[in-house]
């Protein structure tokens, strides 16, 4: 397989891989590294690519696993300590602006969701995959995906309603 052929296969979904990685890893740089890693792994196994039924779904699963590994690794845990220890009691100007920007609020709400729900929201509402495809990617059954999706959507709506009516009621 030549580089051009490979790129033709990979190009359509490389952004999706990146966005999924960013959803899980939060930082753009980390997500870029993860995407690069996933694409390189695909490239190195390019001989097997024809055997895969659905390269896109396979890559998404790969990305998910890779990101989970990253999050479990020591490096990420070090970061976690820093983040959870950090608490800002007086809201800074920066934060106030952020709060007023409700779109970034959604990002924050999704960030607080459990990982499984985060993944499903990402795959369904942003990447618009079929429920069956998502089930295959995440190795879950269809109903479990639906339940998680519904829970995630409800949580987002509830939190948004709270912030929306904050100060009014």
């Amino acid at each position: 397989m030549t580089q051009a052929e490979f790129l033709n296969i990979v190009m359509p979904f490389k952004d999706k891989v990146f966005r999924l990685a960013k959803r899980l890893l939060v930082s753009t740089e980390e997500a870029e590294d993860a995407t690069q890693e996933v694409l390189l792994k695909l490239w190195n196994n390019k001989k097997k690519i024809q055997e895969y039924k659905n390269v896109e779904a396979f890559s998404m699963t790969m990305t998910k696993n890779f990101c989970f590994d990253k999050l479990k690794s020591k490096q990420a845990q070090n970061l976690k300590i820093v983040h959870s220890n950090y608490e800002d009691n007086n809201t800074s100007l920066q934060k106030q602006i952020e709060i007023s920007d409700s779109v970034s609020w959604v990002a924050k709400i999704i960030e607080d969701l459990p990982e499984q729900q985060k993944l499903i929201i990402q795959l369904r509402d942003i990447e618009e995959y079929d429920l069956d495809e998502i089930a295959k990617m995440l190795d879950m059954n269809n109903t479990a995906v639906r339940v998680n999706l519904s829970r995630a959507r409800k949580t987002i709506r509830e939190k948004l309603t709270n912030t929306h009516s904050y100060g009014i009621k």
Partner: peptide
Amino acid sequence: MYKPMFDYF
């Protein structure tokens, strides 16, 4: 309140 959600997507 749904608007930001869909906007974000």
